[in-house]
Design a protein around this nucleic acid. Structure first.
Lengths: 130, 130
DNA sequence: CCTTGCCTTGACGTCGGCGTCAACGCATAC
DNA sequence: GTATGCGTTGACGCCGACGTCAAGGCAAGG
């Protein structure tokens, strides 16, 4: 399988595959004419990468999963290094979600206060609004 | 007040202030020698910007607030355009937090599953662990 | 022979919000 | 005079994960 087909089957671009190769994440064998050659295992590795990236993992964070698969394990997360990344990511997510929730509440309060102020301005204090 | 003092009082850098000026967000008057000159109102505007940026607002999103203050309103969020930004930001935050929560749960499930698999591998099925 | 379509490498562009020089001017303090 | 410390403009660097050209090679089909 050449780069174009792999890209299509994984729903990504050839540029992305070349980028991954440059990063040492998904090296390719070469055909006699210099064209990159991939097999079904490479597709599995690539899908692992793409899935993790869809989850918001940085490219480097997918490396343990890829190496785990390449080492022959049934799943990318069958290795301790992968679990460590999971845990770190979980902590990061909890932290981030917590901070965003705080911000969300602050913004909500600001909005409520500003809307109220605007309302009072429109209908001056103690107006007899029915 | 010159740029260095304003930066210090707002807890930011002169580079940032020049950047804001280049963006048309915080224009400065000039002294005879060409030095930028700011007053207390500029400090208020700058603090408004910084507060919003700390909340994760993009620079452009702070513009309505700044213009609102500059128009003479008591608060940056006293204008409809500012309220619109608040509402948009609130929706964005809710959406983002929701998606992150989904990802968090997916990662947690993956982690749990992988830990269980690792545990079973260490202590093969039906081991008599006391 | 020529077009089409795949592939190759190389290199610059993108996005935001600045950081970090470089090279210079002007003013006060010593 | 000169060292210090402020200011000025201009321009490149950074971060990640690619997108997007450019220029060229090689094979099959009409």
């Amino acid at each position: 399988m050449r780069i174009g087909e792999l890209a299509k089957r994984a729903g990504t671009s050839t540029r992305t595959l070349r980028y991954y190769e440059a990063r040492g994440l998904l090296p390719a064998r070469r055909a006699a004419n210099g064209h990159r050659t991939y097999d079904e295992d490479d597709l599995r590795l690539l899908r692992e990468i793409r899935t993790l990236r869809d989850f918001g993992f940085e490219l480097e964070e997918t490396r343990p999963f890829v190496e785990c698969l390449r080492a022959g394990h049934p799943a990318g997360d069958s290795c301790p290094a992968s679990l460590a990344v999971y845990r770190r990511k979980l902590a990061e997510l909890d932290d981030l979600i917590g901070r965003l929730a705080d911000v969300r509440d602050q913004v909500a309060r600001q909005l409520a206060g500003a809307e109220e102020a605007a309302g009072e301005a429109a209908a001056p204090r103690c107006a007899m609004t029915p």
